[in-house]
């Protein structure tokens, strides 16, 4: 199963195995990764699943959608070129080892 490395707000790392097809958000909330609030459960309605995807993996996670783009503009934490809503990234074997940093505020 592909793994996700979460850099948590307190500086520690948590490595979680993902079910292929599940989103990064799904994987995080079900395993209780702190800081991923994800109140809407992936409906792209809350912008509380904000992460920063590590540079190496950015080209692999696809484009930011139009709606996601608007949500990210107004997310609670600062938006950078690495910002994504983690509910919009589905895990594949290709993404094994992907490193994401949990946004400091959701």
């Amino acid at each position: 199963m592909p793994k996700i490395v979460f850099n948590r707000a307190d500086g520690s790392q948590q490595i979680v195995e993902a079910r292929p097809g599940a989103s990064i958000m799904d994987t995080a909330t079900r395993s209780g990764v702190p800081g991923i609030v994800a109140e809407c459960g992936g409906a792209m309605a809350c912008a509380t699943c904000h992460v920063y995807v590590a540079d190496d993996y950015l080209p692999l996670v696809g484009e930011v959608g139009e709606f996601e783009d608007e949500m990210l503009d107004d997310a609670a934490a600062e938006r950078t070129a690495n910002s994504r809503l983690s509910c919009q990234i589905r895990m594949t074997d290709e993404l094994d080892g992907i490193e994401v940093t949990v946004a400091p505020e959701q």
Binding site: R19, A22, D26, T29, R30, S31, G32
Partner: peptide, 11 residues
């Protein structure tokens, strides 16, 4: 159904 789970049993 598996997509609906709030948390894993392991959690």
């Amino acid at each position: 159904r598996a997509d609906l789970a709030l948390r894993t049993p392991e959690f």
